[in-house]
Amino acid sequence: MPDRRETLAWLLRALALSAAPVVHVDSASARQGCAAAPAKPDQIGAAWRGDRGYGRDPDLLHPQVTWALTLTAQQKTAIARLADVFLPEEGSSPSASAVAVPEFIDEWVSAPYPQQQQDRVVLLEGMAALECAGNAPLHTLNASQAQILVAGLHARAAEGKEPEARFFARFRHICLIGYYTTPVGVAELGYVGYQPSARFAGPPPEVLAKLGL
């Protein structure tokens, strides 16, 4: 089966949807002063006008992303570098970029909904701050440079410094969603389900034993 996100990206390119995102924070302009403007969630929420989403009656059997993906190739590369530090390859467990987490993040921050538009600001703003800190365009970082950058980010986030703390939390969260809702991620968590059966057996004896029941 082709990967759904690849299919969607291809589909959207083919459709050549050109709608621009509602909120613009591009890292270039944020970089100039090397200080990002704080996000204003209320304004962002108000920007959702009920249009350009998938609507209130989408075809549930054939899910489609209806908005244009908006990240540049460089932004996606940068996100891949960072995401692979958050969720690295580990034995048979693939890295974030190997299961299309950057594509998922593009889908997320390009969505017209308030939460996603807010995350767009947090992510792009945070990346701009990181570029400032690292003094290099993020997409040019190699793996060990990215590792160092995230270590610094983590230290600032642990101290509650903004915008790093906000960026760390939201970036990590969206990576987790993107990773662990793929078939690989679902299997790694050990979710077993979606197995139609005549009866529900309940937890097996070894689980009950572990639970002390």
């Binding site: 209130r56 899910p63 489609q64 993107g178």
Partner: peptide, 15 residues
């Protein structure tokens, strides 16, 4: 259909 197959992994939206 699995969560991961939906836009935004099936997260809630105003729609």
């Amino acid at each position: 259909q699995r969560h991961g197959e939906a836009p935004l992994a099936d997260a809630g939206t105003p729609d």
